[in-house]
Each structure stands twice: as C-alpha cells, then as structure tokens.
C-alpha cells in the first residue's frame, strides 16, 4: 500500500510537471500578449511593460523562474490586473466556487443515485421513461440555457429568488441547480445502465435463488458493483465542479474562480493561465487518486499494486 501510494504520488508530480510545461509552451505560442488591450500601446510604453514583467528574458529563463516560484506556491503577479496576484485570484474565488461545487455534488448524489436505481428497477415502465426523458434533456441542454430559464422563471417572473449574487442563502439555489444539470443527468443515466448490467449477472440470480429479498439483493449485492463506474466519474466531476464554471458564474454574477478559466486566456494573462490550469490539474489528479483508493473500499477484489 505505502509503495503504491508513493508510486502514485510520484506519477502525480510528473503529470503536473508535464501540464506546467505544455501549458507554458502552448500559451506562448498563441498570438497576442498580455498588453494587447483595447488599443495599441506606443512602442516605448510596451517596451517598458515588457521589461517590468520580465517578458524580454529568454523563454527558458522565464520558465525556470516560474517553476522556482511554483515550488514555494507563488503563482506570480497577474500581468493583466495591476497589483493582483494569481494566488489572490484563487484565494478569493475558490471558497465560493468550491462551496457551490460541494452543494452541487451533494444535490447530484442525493438525486441521481435514487433516480438511477428507480429507473433501472422499473426498466421500461413509465417511471423509467419519465426519468430517462428528463435525463436526456439534462444532458443535451447547455447550462447557460438552464441558468437563464431558471433565472427568468424564479427570479424575473416569480420574484422568489435574487437575480444575481449570493448575499443571501437563496442566491445559491439557482446556481447550484444550473451547475448540477448536466452531471445530474449523466450520473442518473450511468447509475441506471450500470445497475441494469449488474442485475443481469449470474451472481444476482444466485442471490435470488438463495431466497434473498429483492431489497437485500439490490442493496447488498447489486449496488456495490453498480457504483464502481459512478465513483470513477465522480473524481473528474468533483474536480470540475469545485473549481467553478465560467458560464454559471458569469450569468449569476458570482465572484468565483471559474470566470478566470476563460478570461485569463482572452486576456493573455500568462501567469493567471498557468496558475489556474495548475490548480485545476492538481485537484483533478488528487481526485482521481482518491477515487482509486475508494475502489478498494468498495470492491475488495481490486488490489492496489
């Protein structure tokens, strides 16, 4: 076990380094720079800025500089927002984004697992058809449509919830639902198909033949195996939910960190692109790792090696 964890941690660092290197190279290969703003700057001004942010140093030196900062968790100053650091972007945005993400994941699990089970048990019946109909819509309708429709109905028409912001608890309701939409539908479908597959296997027939009640068969024998694919998908899902969504944060005017995924690229804010990507990648590899540990707990047949 210890050996396995050590090996995995080493791989994780290698993966992260690859992410850092690739992002750095890709970022510098796209046209435009952090000082491409609303209007062209006079050459002398642009040169002064390039010098100020050390962008005139050779690329490999900039890279080494960057990695050196990274080792002490310094993601550098933003090139676009004067006086701000990328650490601040994350420190100020992540708490809200992760709070929304956690609420969403709880919401998703509480709904998706029972709905998926009902759908599988009542396979072919009206309950199944209704749930699958809704789930298909949830997957195909983009989150910005869900978000605007929800806002239109509950905030604009009915006036039950605020249009934007999270200054009251009510402010979380719509963003959480809109953020969950896709994953909720996806996990419901996954749970259903996975459970259906398990239920058709020989050992379930054996369990039934032993005279176990249907509930015991489902909960003790089928669910455990059926959950494996769901747990697998939960890692990346959680990583992306925790780090925020550009669309949802933009529509509901939430000061999270999801907004930076897109704006940092549009701004060519080099340090922000790097910092946000690395932060996301770190959470992602950590989640995948945790999922692998969970496997063992759910399915004793899986051995870590």
């Amino acid at each position: 076990m210890a050996w396995y964890v050590a090996k995995r941690v080493a791989t994780m660092f290698a993966t992260l380094f690859a992410v850092v290197l690739l992002t750095f190279m890709l970022m510098h290969s796209i046209p435009g720079g952090p000082f491409t703003a609303e209007r062209k700057l006079p050459d002398a001004v642009e040169q002064a800025l390039v010098k100020k942010y050390n962008l005139d140093a050779p690329l490999h030196e900039q890279f080494i500089d960057y990695v050196r900062g990274l080792l002490v968790f310094d993601l550098g100053p933003s090139f676009k927002y004067e006086g701000r650091s990328v650490n601040e972007f994350i420190a100020e945005g992540f708490p809200l984004s992760s709070r929304l993400g956690l609420m969403s994941i709880v919401f998703i699990l509480f709904l998706a697992l029972p709905l998926g089970c009902v759908s599988a048990i009542k396979s072919g019946k009206w309950q199944d058809l209704l749930i699958m109909f809704l789930a298909t819509l949830g997957i195909t309708i983009p989150s910005f449509v869900i978000a605007t429709a929800l806002m239109y109905l509950f905030s604009y028409r009915l006036g039950w919830l605020p249009v934007f912001g999270v200054s009251s608890v009510k402010g979380y309701v719509l963003p959480v639902i809109a953020l969950s939409g896709y994953s909720l539908a996806f996990i419901t479908r996954l749970m259903r198909s996975s459970l259906l597959e398990v239920m058709g296997q020989d050992y379930i027939r054996t369990a039934r033949a032993k005279g176990l009640s249907e509930t015991a068969v489902l909960v003790k024998h089928a669910m455990r195996n059926a959950l494996l694919p769901v747990v697998t998908i939960l890692g990346p899902t959680l990583a992306s939910l925790l780090t925020g969504s550009f669309v949802i944060e933009k529509i509901f005017a939430l000061p999270g960190m999801g907004i930076h995924f897109v704006t940092s690229i549009a701004n060519r804010d080099y340090t922000a692109i790097m910092g946000i990507t690395i932060f996301y990648a770190t959470i992602l590899v950590a989640m995948v790792f945790i999922v692998d540990i969970f496997y063992v707990m759910i399915d004793p047949r899986i051995k870590l090696q």
Binding site: L134, G138, I146, T148, A149
Partner: peptide, 10 residues
C-alpha cells in the same frame, strides 16, 4: 428563446 421543455425537469 422559447421556454425550453427541459426547464420542466429542473
């Protein structure tokens, strides 16, 4: 946009 049917779900 027309009010989408999916909104029923949500």
């Amino acid at each position: 946009m027309k009010f989408p049917l999916s909104a029923l779900a949500t």
